[in-house]
Design a protein around this nucleic acid. Structure first.
Lengths: 124, 124
DNA sequence: TGAATATATGAACATTTGTTCATATATAGT
DNA sequence: ACTATATATGAACAAATGTTCATATATTCA
C-alpha cells in the first residue's frame, strides 16, 4: 500500500523514503516569500499577548491616553508604554499629542477583522 | 504642599490625576471576558512563529505527512512533530493515520481568513 | 517474532519576551 | 528658572518558547 504514489516520486532524503514530491512542489510554489512569512509572524506575535489584546480592544472602544489604559488594565504606566511602542512599530496604533498627554488610537480595520475571526475560532 | 502623609494612602494606579473615567468605563464594559482574552492570545501566539505559519500554508495547499513537511521546510522531523502537536492542541490541524504515515490537514477556514487579513496588513 | 520505519515526546539548552525599576524627555504652569 | 506631570526608554530579571538530541511508541513487512 503506497498511497497512490508513483515510484518516480520517491526519493531518499531525511529519515523517510516515501516523500510525496508533487505535493511538496505544489506547496513550495504556493508558499509566500520568506519576508512576507517573517512579517506575518511578527504581526501575529503582537496579538499573542493578553496585555496587547486588551490595549487594542480598549482603543477599539475609544482613543485613550497612556494613563487611562494603565488605569483600565491596572498596570504600570511603564508596562503600557513599552507595549504601545511595540504596537506603534507594528503600525497597529497611532498617536496624537495634546500638551503632556498622548492619545493613542487604532490604525486600521484589519485588527477588528482579525479579532473577530480569532474570537469566532476560540468560541467554537 | 508639605503633606507627605497622605501619599502612602493614595491608591496610585498610575501617576496621573487626569483620568477620563467615562471613557475608561465604556472600554471596561466592551472588554471581553478574561477567559476569551486568554484564549485569543493563545491562538495568536500560535500564528506568531514562521515555522508554524509555513506549516499552515503548506497544509492549506494539501494535506501532508510529517516527513513531507520536514522535507519542504528543511527541518528535522522532531521539530515539525512538536509544532504539529501545538497546532493540534489549538484545533488548527487534524490528522488521519494511514499505516505508519500520519497525514495532517487544516481544521477550519478561520485560518485562511486570518492569514488573508494578516497578509493584507503587512503588505500595506 | 524481529527489523525497519514514521511519528511522538521528555529533557536540556539557548533565545526571546514582558514586566519592573530607575531615569530620561517633553510639556505646562508658576 | 523651577516644579509638577505625562510619557518614553534602557537595563535587568524571570518566565516562556523553539529546536535538538535521545529515546519511546506504533505500524508494516519479512
Amino acid at each position: 500500500m503506497n498511497d497512490n504514489i508513483n515510484s518516480e516520486d520517491r526519493i531518499e532524503v531525511c529519515q523517510s523514503n516515501i516523500i510525496h514530491n508533487n505535493i511538496i512542489e505544489k506547496a513550495r510554489e504556493e508558499m509566500p516569500d520568506e519576508e512576507i512569512l517573517y512579517d506575518m509572524a511578527e504581526l501575529f506575535k503582537i496579538f499573542g499577548d493578553t496585555t496587547r489584546i486588551r490595549i487594542l480592544y480598549a482603543l477599539s472602544s475609544s482613543e485613550m491616553c497612556v494613563c487611562d489604559i494603565a488605569t483600565l488594565l491596572n498596570m504600570t504606566q511603564s508596562a503600557i508604554s513599552h507595549q504601545l511602542r511595540l504596537l506603534k512599530q507594528a503600525s497597529l496604533v497611532k498617536y496624537r499629542r495634546s500638551g503632556r498627554t498622548v492619545y493613542y488610537s487604532l490604525c486600521d480595520d484589519h485588527i477588528k477583522t482579525i479579532f473577530e475571526q480569532g474570537l469566532s475560532h476560540v468560541q467554537e
